[in-house]
Amino acid sequence: MTSTTLPARRDAPASRPRRRRPRTKQHLIAWAFVAPLLVVNVLVITGPGLASVYYSFTDWNGIGQPNFIGLANYAEMLSSGAVLNAFVHNIVWTIFFLVVPMAMGLVGAFLLSRIRRGQVLFRVLFFIPYVLATVVSAAIWRQILDPRGGIGATLADLGLPFLTDVNFLGNPSLALGSVAFINNWQWWGFLLVIFLAAMQSVDPALYEAARLDGAGPVREFWNITLPSIRPTFVFLSLMTVIWSFLVFDYIYVLTKGGPAGSTDVLSTLLYREAFENQRQGYASAVAMLLSVISAATVIGYFALRRRLKWDV
């Protein structure tokens, strides 16, 4: 017995390294695979992000030495009419993109899901704007909306002068809506394709059962389609909110935030302060505000998900 137990005791410690070594090696392999991404993350996200936090407490102009000024940038930002103006435009933009393209994408996808012939053609047609470079589509739309030679002038030549004096991008009352319209032109086709893909995964038996019960297309949409694609819908809504606060490209290319700030959003304001007014410190504070908004959106989403017990 002794002879049998002693070897067993000696075996026990001896067997541990044999089990550990593979685990250690596996960890090493895992870290080796993750390492490049971590390096990239530290170099281009975490590092600059932390640097921005630091610069937001300084008066850095982008080329000189930063001086610590405490909360002065934040105090100025919170009392700034320009920041409030840009923030309100972000809210308007968010509401627009939560309603218009989402509705167009949902309805378009639902209608497309009910046809068999030509579905691929329509999908491609609707998706094409999304693959166009922003600068290209912005340039096209600038030409279309140009009061001197665009749609207004063309319609006037055809005897329909009702758009002759409408300057879509030059009128402060119309500019934000015009830029949002152009961005939506590119965006809604993308949503349609995503919603369509989600709808195609819904069990057809549900629709058949509903039809047997006498449900029409509207009821099918509300009672089957929408609940079935809720994970996709909620995720896209969340991303729409985040993207709406980060929007920059179309506004910058078309109006640069003008006329007179009528299309300014936080990111164009941030860009102008950083690169035109040489106020990198102040711009970093605005960037912090943007980050807080995005973080709050994500946290709110997870809280809602937990509370409502959503499966997304």
Binding site: A32, L38, L43
Partner: peptide, 23 residues
């Protein structure tokens, strides 16, 4: 660790080092 895994680990480390140097 077999030869394939070693090669993969080495490749991953080299890629990380290269990216760092490129930056």
């Amino acid at each position: 660790m077999n030869r394939k895994k070693r090669a993969l680990v080495l490749t991953g480390m080299l890629a990380a080092a290269a990216m760092t140097l490129v930056g």
